[in-house]
């Protein structure tokens, strides 16, 4: 087994996913299978290969510091599940 149920529970929690028992078992098997599959890559000798930073051979893509246009507030808030017209509205954040 490449991964156990507890680890799946942990990553599900980090991703804010609620999994029932059946799903937990199912994902543990499936993700374990995926990990076994990609483990084949470990057979490659990569000791002399630089870790890949990006799949494209690109570097230094920049923009100049120029202010462009922003979205209208109406438009940007129209994507929010809830808003007040000025702000996004979210469940109360309890800091302590």
């Amino acid at each position: 087994m490449k991964i156990n149920k507890r680890e799946i529970e942990h990553v599900a929690m980090l991703a804010r996913l609620k999994l029932d028992d059946e799903e937990l078992t199912q994902f543990t098997t499936q993700i374990g299978d995926i990990l076994s599959y990609v483990e084949k890559l470990n057979e490659l000798d990569t000791t002399k290969v630089e870790p890949t930073s990006h799949v494209f051979d690109l570097k230094n893509v920049f923009r100049n510091d120029v202010v462009g246009s922003s979205l209208s507030r109406e438009k940007v808030l129209s994507n929010a599940p809830e808003g007040t017209g000025k702000y996004y509205k979210v469940p109360k954040i309890i800091e302590q």
Binding site: G68, R73, L77, Y88
Partner: peptide, 17 residues
């Protein structure tokens, strides 16, 4: 992104995708 960094602007008027 190109949105302005101006302080104390009206809420949610300096955003983009």
């Amino acid at each position: 992104c190109g949105c302005s960094t101006r302080f104390a602007a009206e809420p949610n008027t300096q955003t983009c995708p």
